[in-house]
Amino acid sequence: MITFLAALDGVFARVLNLLVLVTSLVVTAALVLLVTARAGFDLPLTGMHEASMLAAMWLYMAGATLATRNGRHLTVDFLATGLTGRRARAIHGLIIAAITAVVAGLFCFWVWKMFAWGLKRPQTIPVLGLPLWLAQAPLALAAVTAVLYALRDMARAVLALAGRGEGG
């Protein structure tokens, strides 16, 4: 089971990396093209801001998901570094992961409500004419993965408490 989840997580990380590379390219290239066309050829390229922002939203949230996965969110950690015992640290980790799971669950709820309302009052991205949910979907990515990785961290803490290693 753990092996399977770990493999799944590895595949997911590759997908995220790919997403980040492609969106970074689009965010940059759209603006470079816009300026080059405007300054060099007196051409107004429409839709470049919109394309850049759409890609940026995916970049932001894919990046946030990577930070969640790798445990690299900014933290005020003087309590955690003050805890020396293995058991105390595991309990602390369990509590933090549990609170994170609850808060991330609320994040999911808010995102879900945003989509539900968007179904009732659909919007389009100006100029591109694409549905707005394409730009909002990355928020769901960040929210759902925050819950899943919080559960992972809870499981790790429980395993540590039970005296075993990091698990998968």
Binding site: H73, W110, K113, M114, A146
Partner: peptide, 28 residues
């Protein structure tokens, strides 16, 4: 207690949502 800053802020959003009876259609 060491909850990541992002999730601490999210928790405050939750608390304020209760206090101010937020409309969840537009919150996010």
């Amino acid at each position: 207690i060491g909850l990541p800053v992002a999730w601490s802020f999210a928790a405050v959003v939750a608390a304020l949502a209760v206090i101010y009876d937020a409309n969840f259609n537009t919150l996010m």
